[in-house]
Design a binder for these strands. Structure first.
Lengths: 204, 204
DNA sequence: TTTGACAGGTCAACAGCGTTTACCTATACC
DNA sequence: GGTATAGGTAAACGCTGTTGACCTGTCAAA
C-alpha cells in the first residue's frame, strides 16, 4: 500500500506504480476530454496518450465513465458558489457565474463536458453531479418550504442557459449588453426563489 | 410467393417494396425509441423488430441518426404552439405545455428523446431541431429588437425544465400545486420576453 | 419467349468501441 | 533464495454502426 520509493530514500520520480499510473491516466483524460469531448475520446486513445495499457483504465477507475466521475469529483464550483459569500448575494453569484459561462469563461473542461452532456454513458454521471453539486447543496442552503422545488427551478434556468449556448454557439445570448443580460438572469433566478403565494417583497 | 403488387391490379397490401419497408422501419424505430431511448436501441434491434434486414436502415435513411431525423421531421409541436392562438397568450401556451411535459404528458417519443439528448450522434440532430422548431419560429414571431435573445432565454427556461425533470425524475417539480407551478413558469417566460431597459409594465 | 436491366433484399464482413480474462513480471518480504 | 503479490500486458469478447458484394424477383423491350 505505502510507496516504498520515498521511504527507501530514493528521490527519483517513479514511472510506474499505482499512484503514478492513476495520475497519468487522469491527466491525459482531462486533457483529451477538454479538447475533444468525452464521446469522441476512446479508452484506447487515453491509454496510448498516457503511455499506459488500456486495461488499466478499467482497473483503476472501473470504467470510462468512472474515470470521468473521478475527474469531476475534484472540481465542484457550484457548492462553493452557493456557500461562499453573503446569502443575500447568492442569486447574483449564480447569475454572474452563468453569464460568464455564456461568454466562454470558466473551466475549459466544463465547457467540453457540457458539449458532451447527454451521452448515454454519462447520463448517470451527470445526474449524480447535478444533484450533488447544485440541487442538494442549494436545497439545504435554502432550507425552507418547497426548497427542493425552488432549487430545481434555479437549476433549470442555469442548465437551460448553458444548453442553449451550446446549440446557439453563444451568439444569440451574447448580442446584448453583458450587464443587462446578467441583470435579467438575476431577475429570473430571484423569481425562481420567490415564495409561492407571496407577493413581490419589493412591492408590498 | 407474394401476389403481384397493386401494379398488377390487386388491392392487397404488399409486404415488400420501398414504401412499405420504409414505413415498417419508421414505425418500429418510433416505438423502440419511445420505450428505450435512442442510445439503447441498436440498428439490429430496429431491423429485427421491423422484420427487415439491418442494411436497409442505412439504405433508406443513410444512418441511424438519419432515421431519427426523419422521425422528428414529422412531429413539430412547438411551431404550432407558437403560431396557433392569440399572441397575448403565447407565454401561457408555452408554460402550460412545459408543465404538462413535467407531468409526463405530451408525446412519449419526445420524452424518450429528451432522455437520450446529448448522444454525440444526436448532437447535430438536436441542434438543428431546437433551432428550426423553437428558436427560429419564435424569433420570427417576436420580430422585434433582440428577438433572438428573448427567444434564446425562453428556450433556456423550457429546455432547463425538461432537463431537470429528467434528472430529478420530475418529483421535485411536481410536489407543489400544478397551477402555482404553471403561473411561476409563465412569469419566468414573461420575464424572458420583457424588453431590455424597460421597467416593469405592471408597475409604472 | 427470351433477354436484360434494375430496384429491393440478403449476408458477411469491417473497423471501432468498452470491457474482461488469463497470463506475465518485477518488486518486497520472510 | 524462495515466494507471494501488486502492477502491467496481450488477446480476446460481444457489441456497435456501417458497407460492399452478392442474390432475386419483377418488369420492359426485343
Amino acid at each position: 500500500m505505502e510507496r516504498p520509493d520515498e521511504t527507501g530514500g530514493g528521490a527519483t520520480a517513479p514511472t510506474r506504480g499505482r499512484e503514478v499510473t492513476r495520475e497519468r491516466i487522469l491527466t491525459s483524460a482531462k486533457e483529451l476530454f477538454t479538447n475533444e469531448g468525452f464521446g469522441s475520446v476512446s479508452s484506447r486513445m487515453i491509454a496510448s496518450h498516457a503511455g499506459v495499457n488500456v486495461a488499466l483504465i478499467n482497473r483503476y477507475f472501473g470504467s470510462k465513465a468512472g474515470l470521468l466521475t473521478e475527474i469531476l469529483r475534484e472540481d465542484g464550483v457550484f457548492p462553493r458558489l452557493i456557500t461562499d459569500g453573503p446569502p443575500e448575494e447568492l442569486t447574483r453569484r449564480l447569475a454572474e457565474h452563468a453569464v460568464s459561462r455564456l461568454y466562454g469563461e470558466g473551466s475549459a473542461l466544463q465547457r467540453a463536458l457540457d458539449h458532451s452532456a447527454g451521452d448515454p454513458d454519462l447520463q448517470s454521471v451527470y445526474q449524480g453531479r447535478l444533484k450533488s453539486a447544485l440541487l442538494d447543496p442549494l436545497t439545504v442552503y435554502l432550507g425552507r418550504e418547497n426548497a427542493r422545488l425552488h432549487a430545481s427551478l434555479v437549476a433549470a434556468v442555469l442548465l437551460g442557459l448553458s444548453r442553449v449556448r451550446r446549440v446557439e454557439g453563444g451568439d444569440a445570448l451574447r448580442t446584448s449588453d453583458r450587464a443587462q443580460l446578467t441583470e435579467r438572469v438575476l431577475a429570473l433566478l430571484e423569481l425562481c426563489l420567490e415564495d409561492f403565494g407571496a407577493p413581490d417583497p419589493d412591492d408590498p
